[in-house]
């Protein structure tokens, strides 16, 4: 069994090379993540968007969830850092400072690397959780995600969220 944890160990080793030169780190990691979430899942309409479904707040919740592994949390933190390093190496600026076209180029570049592909997958997974999880978690407001794909949730629905 080899999964992203194995990759994570390898990539942590690899990052030593990156950190030998100028290290960029946005002051606002959350800002980078929000822009990234919007790039991965751009607004469809006034409700079907990252802001309305509370995907940013949900990711913050996940970063403090007892049942999410420390490796996953660290990988997200590292991913933000590496994303900005990639942006810097391509355009000499951190990710949030780039225009949409350049951000897409950065994503295309990291997607060719195993850590980058895994990072995009991880962020998308938590977007999907915010879009298709039960609104009891403060997400998927008005059940917009379910309505978008004509999905019928199972009954009974949860009365309270599970925080671990």
């Amino acid at each position: 069994m080899v999964d992203k944890r194995e990759f994570l160990k390898l990539s942590l080793f690899g990052v030593g090379v990156l950190t030998t030169y100028k290290l960029f780190w946005t002051k606002d990691t959350t800002n980078t993540l929000t822009i990234l979430q919007n790039d991965l899942f751009p607004p469809i309409d006034a409700k079907l968007n990252i802001s309305y479904i509370n995907a940013r707040e949900y990711l913050s919740y996940i970063m403090h969830h007892k049942r999410v592994s420390d490796d996953t949390k660290q990988f997200i933190r590292n991913g933000v850092k590496w994303l900005n390093e990639e942006a810097d190496s391509l355009y000499n600026a951190v990710y949030p400072e780039l225009d949409n076209q350049k951000r897409q180029k950065v994503l295309e570049s990291i997607a060719k690397q195993s850590w980058g592909e895994s990072f995009i997958e991880t962020i998308l997974t938590f977007i999907f959780e915010a879009l298709f999880g039960d609104p009891v978690y403060g997400i998927n407001k008005d059940e917009v995600g379910w309505k978008w794909i004509d999905y019928t949730p199972g009954q009974p629905r949860p009365k309270k969220r599970f925080d671990g």
Binding site: R67, D70, E129, P156, R157, P158
Partner: peptide, 17 residues
């Protein structure tokens, strides 16, 4: 309940930590 997020967080299993 049919809480998919709780299922994904292994609600009825020990925390692996």
């Amino acid at each position: 309940s049919k809480d998919e997020l709780a299922f994904r967080r292994d609600i009825y299993k020990p925390n692996l930590k």
